[in-house]
């Protein structure tokens, strides 16, 4: 128990939490904006995976990490639009469309990986690039805090910034208002002249782009290669995190952080001689518990509101 304590209250652990939270946070924000527009984006997992591969391929081809990132974002955005096309134009069930995207991505990435790297498992034969780490001046001099907050991948800071930007977008801009009204009551929104379909398309494009950031981070920051199914359910975990912090970007951030802690814990308590299978299940178990807690909370709130009526 004492070792566990030592692990959790260490600078390394704090740093690791932010490191592993980054992809989950991007995906959580992606889930948030699509949910606000009234679409559950199950395809996040597949979008992240495709973007991760795109980042590796484009950065290897151009020898520029930034162009690689751009490639990942474009692929992510396009896949968000594809999901919108499936569900809004072809009128397929949103959940099934998401599943289709995931299936296509998990096989399709392997297919493409083999074409470019001649390996079905990992992309190490490609000389792909990694996005830079950033040392924050002044803060990195502060003991403990500096060690936790400074020296992260640039995308980690972008993910934190995105929380604020998402808040501004949703609550301080006309587009945000449109997105929320479309999600809450599409008929009412359409009656005041909002183009519901267009707004949903936009929301899903942004959602895809955010998932693209998450994917790029996986293969160009978290590690420096692409491996098959490397997102390992993070897109799904993000759906749960978003459900936990439903109404606000900040709460979603905190929820993502909880899953990040569970994930970091599973990485660092492997030294404690617990069975690795148990440790690896921690994030998934935490997700289910989180889902129950949140849903129960929402349920009791609703019941209370009804009583007051």
């Amino acid at each position: 128990m004492k070792t566990l304590f030592n692990i959790i209250f260490s600078v390394n652990f704090g740093y690791a939490v932010l490191r592993v939270t980054t992809p989950i946070l991007f995906a959580t924000l992606a889930a948030l904006i699509s949910d606000k527009a009234g679409v559950i984006n199950i395809g996040l997992e597949g979008i992240m995976l495709s973007s991760a591969l795109a980042g590796v391929i484009v950065s290897a081809a151009t020898q520029s990490a930034w162009i690689g990132l751009l490639g990942a974002l474009i692929v992510g955005t396009l896949m968000g639009v594809l999901l919108a096309y499936f569900s809004l134009d072809l009128k397929a069930d949103t959940t099934l469309s998401g599943i289709a995207i995931n299936l296509m991505a998990s096989g399709g990435t392997i297919f493409v990986l083999y074409l470019v790297a001649h390996d079905k498992g990992i992309s190490t034969s490609l000389k792909s690039m990694v996005l830079p780490k950033i040392t924050i001046p002044l803060i990195d001099k502060i003991p403990v805090v500096g060690g936790i907050l400074s020296g992260h991948n640039v995308l980690t800071y972008i993910s934190l910034l995105s929380v604020i930007l998402m808040y501004i977008l949703l609550f301080k801009t006309p587009l945000g208002l449109k997105i929320r009204s479309v999600g809450e009551n599409p008929d009412a929104a359409s009656s005041v002249g909002i183009n519901v379909k267009k707004v949903k398309y936009l929301a899903l494009a942004i959602s895809g782009m955010l998932a693209g950031f998450g994917g790029a981070y996986m293969s160009m920051g978290y590690v420096s290669w692409f491996s098959q199914n490397m997102t390992a359910g993070r897109g799904f975990i993000a759906l749960a995190a978003e459900a936990m912090g439903s109404s606000s970007p900040l709460a979603s951030f905190l929820a993502a952080l909880i899953f990040g802690i569970a994930d970091a814990l599973s990485n660092s308590i492997q030294s404690l001689r617990l069975p690795p299978e148990f440790v690896q299940s921690i994030p998934y178990i935490a997700t289910i518990i989180g889902l129950i807690v949140n849903s129960a909370k929402a349920d009791s709130k609703k019941a209370k509101a009804e009583e007051e009526k």
């Binding site: 289709a100 995207i101 296509m104 096989g107 399709g108 297919f111």
Partner: peptide, 8 residues
């Protein structure tokens, strides 16, 4: 893996 695309 081309089958994955067909399936989707």
């Amino acid at each position: 893996e081309v089958v994955a695309i067909i399936q989707g």
